[in-house]
């Protein structure tokens, strides 16, 4: 990807909201959590929102890191592996009970599945289908507006 800072943030927010939202809705009932579906949805959507909000901060960091790259690009693989630090941070916050709105405890397996599936879906859409509906998106640094 060839993002600008504004493009990064816009793309993240839109893709997490749309793709992340749909995927979270679909996988909610399939996650290994022994709680009513309403609680599962509440927790998974709060996690999704956390990834989006913290993500704005992460994007600033990625943009800063990108400045050391001559090409000023963000390779596709980077977009995939940044899931690790981001996922770990949200998990640590979950453990420390620092994410408001979470009910009960989210089991580790369910968290990993939820986070990985959403991330993978967003990454796949960003690197492929996104250019069909938004033909100018990739030439404008990922800006949608």
């Amino acid at each position: 990807m060839l993002p600008t800072l504004g493009g990064r943030i816009q793309t993240r927010l839109v893709l997490l909201a749309v793709v992340g939202g749909v995927v979270t809705l679909i996988i909610g009932p399939l996650l290994p959590i022994s709680a009513p579906l309403s609680v599962v949805y509440r927790d998974t959507f709060v996690i999704l929102a956390t990834v989006a909000v913290l993500g704005i901060g992460w994007e600033f960091l990625y943009h800063f890191v990108m400045q050391w790259r001559w090409e000023k690009d963000w390779p596709t693989l980077f977009g995939l592996i940044t899931a690790v630090p981001e996922g770990v941070l949200v998990w640590l916050l979950l453990r420390a009970d620092l994410i408001p709105g979470i009910k009960g405890t989210v089991p580790g397996t369910a968290y990993v599945i939820d986070f990985a599936v959403v991330w993978l879906a967003v990454w796949l859409v960003a690197n492929g289908p996104m250019r069909v509906p938004f033909i100018r998106w990739r030439f404008r640094g990922g800006r949608l507006a």
Partner: peptide, 26 residues
């Protein structure tokens, strides 16, 4: 800083990639 050694300047394409759509294009 562009990479280079042994006489050559190394770059994958004619320009840094972001001229086609990213930071440098803007």
């Amino acid at each position: 800083r562009r990479k280079g050694a042994d006489g050559f300047a190394y770059q994958g394409f004619n320009y840094p990639k972001s001229v086609w759509g990213g930071q440098l294009k803007a």
